[in-house]
């Protein structure tokens, strides 16, 4: 619950970039977003987790792509040209998040953030660090760090 207290202590609004993954609406802190780019076919990485779609060339650097739908275990259609990649910086690592579509930029006061309820499925709760309501819809705030590819698991 540290996350929650931390959120409440900040009085300022939080700007979020919201996007759609499958039928669900998620968001990330806009400060971590570097750019949004169209779909490029990634080069698959051998022996990687299924949600790592591969790597793409981002102006000369090699950028790993995480398929959020697969990461969050949502069933969606295969990625195609309609998908977009949100390039975000998480700690010192830059990662591309493959999502269905970017929807909006929202300013939400911290007071309107609420912690996700205790769920039976520990795994699902881990990715979402807060919830909020926008126009009657539930918006999930992603904990980006949990989305990162897990190195130790992959290096089998």
């Amino acid at each position: 619950m540290n996350e929650q207290t931390a959120l409440q202590n900040e009085a300022t609004d939080r700007e979020l970039l919201s996007f759609r993954v499958g039928e669900q609406e998620y968001s990330v802190d806009i400060m971590s977003v570097r750019e949004i780019r169209g779909w490029t076919r990634p080069t698959p990485i051998p022996h990687s987790a299924d949600y790592v779609r591969g790597v793409i060339n981002l102006r000369g650097t090699v950028l790993p792509i995480v398929d959020l739908a697969r990461r969050l275990d949502l069933s969606v259609e295969e990625a195609c040209e309609r998908n977009v990649i949100i390039v975000s910086k998480i700690r010192h690592q830059t990662v591309g998040l493959l999502v269905d579509a970017v929807s909006d930029i929202l300013a939400i006061p911290d007071s309107e953030m609420q912690p996700p309820p205790e769920m039976t499925e520990e795994k699902d709760r881990g990715f979402v660090k807060a919830l909020t309501i926008v126009d009657g819809r539930m918006l999930r705030v992603l904990d980006l760090e949990t989305v990162l590819p897990e190195q130790s698991v992959e290096a089998v």
């Binding site: 051998p46 022996h47 990687s48 591969g54 060339n57 090699v62 690592q93 190195q151």
Partner: peptide, 19 residues
């Protein structure tokens, strides 16, 4: 940018912009 990949030393970018 990613980490260790078995059997792979590094990456490069080809003429078509693909990694």
């Amino acid at each position: 940018s990613y980490g260790y990949v078995p059997g792979i030393a590094a990456a490069t970018i080809l003429g078509d912009g693909q990694v």
